[in-house]
Design a protein around this nucleic acid. Structure first.
Length: 565
RNA sequence: CGGAGUGUAGCUCAGGUGGCAGAGCACGUGCCUUGGGAGCACGGGGUCGCAGGUUCAAGUCCUGCCACUCCGACCA
């Protein structure tokens, strides 16, 4: 491709809408343009990267035996109502009506659609297993689109769905996808972690996320460098035995005056005790309106995902001051003793002795509280959020904490959708059984941003070879110099013959501008033809800075072979 | 959904107290120039987000709306 005939509108300045590196550089280098909040054009450069990522994903999915197909974006409400997700999915689901006033949704994911296809066309165990996938545009009416391609309202995903005759077989399909995902992310040149994850609203038995390590990611993960344990903090565990305080003899319960002392820090300071001996009692209101009390040690944070899963709730929120008042409670002085609300106790409080709690009375706390002498919990539950330094649940080494971008998520769905939609097959024993499903997503467009987050410097993008829009960038520094132009043309033609994706910058602009654009766009290999040609030399460079050398022009063939890789 | 901010040329932004709509970059033409976003000259380019109001006069003041961005809530 000749730059003079190509469309790559670069920007010298950063558009005010962009904050993070991937957004800034993808805009500036001419890969994307914004159409509306969370909605983008892919320009030729961006489209090339998109296609390269798609093809890598496609290759590995095909090799794993998955079958590509294409499902509609526009889906009838009836399908969503069958599984209840028309209501459950909430405002994130893009909804619209046709001229007959019938409800439709733009698909954010396709469990219902694919299950509908399968139930209509599969009858027997002999028809299974299958793994279907598609690469397609998805929609989510995000509350807050952000960071360019990282969180859009329209985005491109690869989604796959496996159908098996038993959970055992489904786990095999799941494991195969897990291996396939490792191959894909490795080939994409990403620094990533596979972590244990919560299934969230998709549902299912268990799941793993593939997280690209990046400062601007929304995924919080903990991991163990020693044994390899890694999990999203939503679901992460830790070895709490090691975090316990030594046993003590029980002292008599005592109510103490703590005027205007509310927060855990204030209470610990006021009473002169370790924050670990102050227990906070949090009142949550579940989505069905039920109030529950959660007692947790002062130094730990409640993990709301664990809370939702335990109570099988879709939503829960901390009681507001008004709600507390309606329950007859005083903000800052809530405690489990004499409480009408059922008290669930985090395991951090198990075996804790002589601790402090609110007295459910303004300006009073109890000290020397002990279980079960002073109150009886409904149950001890793991409600706490793991954090850096906690002992690994597997090997007890200190956990590390980091953030990343979720670019892949695999779920063992089980029979949630097949049962709801009656996708049954007749097994060998003649009995009708629900198909066991798995689903497997990869955020294709988000991967473009994820890669840039990991691969850039102050001058622009540094693409990994596998997904770069071009492999070789030839800079003709002076287009008026016939010798330079002829040399560039020769190199360009030879590169094309060898099947190298090559971009020749033959535009009549200053040398400096070409270097700036080249750095911004980030093509891995660069051949610079300029002044040194007078001595018969051209310059071979790598965008990542690992190579910059003058080479005799007669060695062009060797260089191109090397670049071809 | 709560909080904050922004909206003026393609981009980045300036336009106290109301009084002829600007700069840099980008763009066009010409000359000149070609190793890190060159120089000179001339030129084109505006529904000042939209609607209403106050006023002799509104980019500027008032009201409402819209869009975008950031923080938070939320986030298969």
């Amino acid at each position: 491709m000749r730059a003079s005939k190509f469309f790559m509108p670069t920007l010298k300045e950063t558009p005010s809408e962009a904050e993070v590196p991937s957004h800034i550089y993808l805009l500036r280098a001419g890969f994307i343009r914004k159409v509306a909040s969370g909605i983008y054009d892919f320009l030729p450069l961006g489209f090339r990267v998109l296609k390269k990522i798609e093809n890598i994903v496609r290759k590995h999915m095909d090799e794993a035996g998955a079958l590509e197909l294409l499902l509609p974006i526009l889906t009838p409400a009836e399908l969503w109502k069958e599984t209840g997700r028309w209501d459950v999915y909430g405002k994130e689901l893009f909804r619209l009506k046709d001229r007959h006033d019938r409800d439709f949704a733009l698909g954010p994911t396709h469990e219902e659609t694919i299950t509908d296809l399968v139930r209509k066309n599969i009858r027997s165990y002999k028809d299974l297993p299958f793994n279907f996938y598609q690469i397609q545009t998805k929609f989510r009416d995000e509350a807050r689109p952000r960071y360019g391609l990282i969180r859009g309202r329209e985005f491109i995903m690869k989604d796959a769905y496996s159908f098996d005759t038993s959970e055992q077989m489904a786990i095999k399909s799941y494991e195969l996808m897990k291996e396939t995902y490792h191959r894909i992310f490795k080939e994409l040149g990403l620094n990533y972690l596979m972590v244990e994850a919560d299934v969230g609203a998709i549902g299912g038995k268990f799941s793993h996320e593939f997280v690209v390590l990046a400062a601007n990611g929304e995924a919080h993960i903990v991991y163990c460098e020693n044994c390899g344990y890694a999990a999203n903090v939503e679901t992460a565990s830790y070895e709490f035995e090691l975090d316990r305080l030594p046993p003590e003899e029980e002292k008599p319960l005592e109510k103490v005056y703590t005027p205007n002392v509310k927060s855990v820090e204030e209470v610990a300071k006021f009473l002169g005790v370790d924050i670990k001996k102050v227990v906070k009692t949090l009142i949550y209101i579940l989505d069905d309106g039920t109030a529950v009390a959660v007692a947790i040690r002062g130094d730990r944070e409640v993990n709301e995902t664990k809370l939702l899963n335990y109570f099988k709730a879709l939503d829960a929120h901390l009681a507001s001051p008004q709600e507390l008042e309606e329950l007859g409670l005083v903000e800052g002085f809530v405690g489990p003793i004499g409480l009408d609300i059922p008290v669930y106790v985090d395991r951090s409080v198990e075996d804790l002795h002589n601790f402090v709690v609110g007295a459910n009375e303004k300006d009073y706390h109890y000290i020397n509280v002990n279980i079960p002498r002073d109150f009886k919990p409904v149950e001890f539950v793991d409600f706490s959020t793991a954090r850096k330094g906690d002992p690994c649940p597997i090997c007890k080494s200190p956990l590390e904490e980091t953030t990343g971008l979720e670019v892949g998520h695999i779920f063992l769905l089980g029979t949630k959708y097949s049962q709801a939609m009656r996708a049954y097959f007749v097994d060998k024993d003649g009995k009708e059984k629900p198909i066991v499903m798995g689903c497997y997503g990869i955020g294709i467009s988000r991967l473009i941003a994820a890669s840039v987050e990991q691969n850039h410097d102050k001058n622009g993008i540094i693409w990994p070879e596998s997904i770069a829009p071009f492999r070789l960038h030839i800079l003709a520094l002076n287009t008026k110099d016939k010798n330079i132009m002829q040399t560039c043309e020769k190199i360009y033609e030879k590169a094309k013959q060898k099947g190298i994706d090559v971009l020749l910058d033959d535009r009549d602009i200053s040398a400096g501008a070409k270097f700036k654009d080249a750095d911004l766009i980030g093509i891995p290999y660069r051949i610079v033809v300029g002044k040194a040609l007078k001595e018969g030399k051209i310059e071979l460079q790598r965008r990542d800075g690992t190579l910059k050398e003058l080479v005799d022009v007669s060695l062009t063939d060797n260089i191109l072979e090397k670049i071809k890789g």
